[in-house]
Design a protein around this nucleic acid. Structure first.
Lengths: 170, 170
DNA sequence: CACTAACAGTTAGTGCACTAACTAATTGGA
DNA sequence: TCCAATTAGTTAGTGCACTAACTGTTAGTG
């Protein structure tokens, strides 16, 4: 752990600002950090989604279904591909999910008039109406989380950076 | 905590800080997809795990399997329950996963000598040896992520708060 | 001592998420 | 014009993750 004397008095070749903090970190620490971040990300996501479960249960929605409904409540005729781009999900994942939402009477899966290949996913009246109940979800989650809003905002900012980095590179 | 502003002079019945910001949002914004922390969390986790896929593929591991191996590389005889506590996973999730690791020749699933109910999960020589290759995983991920280390640290701090909040409450 | 509680792990069933392989519609050239 | 390449969505197959219901073991209590 005790940094070897590599960068002692020498000018430090390519010191981008990003690396300033790294210079105080051993490669070992870097590995640990990465492992911890990926682990924390997976656990936090599972835990938070688990928090949604009892809240979404009365609405008859799972968490991914809830995200799809959020997208549709914002803009209603959407194709499968468009939903996939919004949520970073594969069409193969959405296809059965959308059928379940259709079976629940929340959406319609009609052929797109301009392009027979595509589907026009629209809300049914029941689907549109469900938004009323959904308005109560975020406050309940925030309450159950019991985390300061500033912390949530900080988390959101950090996550956005990661998402930008991982979707831009693709 | 610098919670100064909330303690005005009027007591304000049960205004926890969490609720002030949420209740002051317009209902429209409340359900906006792009400000849902849960959405960002889910997408970030999926993206990062997707980043691991090609890196873990040569090792023959999935991401959850990799996390289990990380736990075992740190401490080797572990029960299913103990792994579950470390990774926040249900025994029902781990049971088939561990059988796959056993089938891959990386672990052994022996009955625990002191308690016939429990399993003693141990590494095989091959499983222990795999650590060598795994040492190369985090640097590859950090490189592919292309994110500043400060951002990773900030993310880790935020996630830790969330995990603490969600596992303590259970 | 017996018998019930609690506990460790497994199995069944549902749903998410991915890749690869497929069908059908559309587009763009040669 | 016609036909190859692209595109939209579906299906099959693997694996993760959960809940509920189960088997078998241990431990606690009457």
């Amino acid at each position: 752990m005790t940094r070897s004397a590599t960068s002692r008095t020498t000018p430090r070749p390519t010191t981008r600002p990003a690396e300033t903090a790294v210079s105080s970190m051993s490669p070992d620490d870097l590995l640990k950090l990465d492992q911890q971040v990926c682990f924390a990300l997976a656990v936090a996501a599972r835990n938070v989604i688990g928090l949604y479960r009892p809240v979404l249960d009365p609405l008859g929605l799972t968490h991914p279904q809830y995200l799809v409904m959020l997208a549709l409540w914002e803009r209603s005729p959407l194709t499968v591909r468009e939903i996939g781009r919004l949520l970073s999900l594969e069409p193969a994942t959405l296809s059965p999910l959308l059928k379940r939402l259709e079976a629940a009477g929340l959406i319609r899966r009609d052929r797109h008039p301009d392009d027979e290949r595509a589907l026009a996913i629209t809300l049914t009246p029941r689907g549109r109406q469900l938004r009323e109940q959904a308005l109560d979800v975020p406050p309940q989650i925030v309450e159950r989380l019991g985390v300061r809003v500033e912390d949530l905002q900080a988390l959101h900012a950090s996550l956005s950076r990661i998402i930008a980095a991982t979707t831009a590179t693709d």
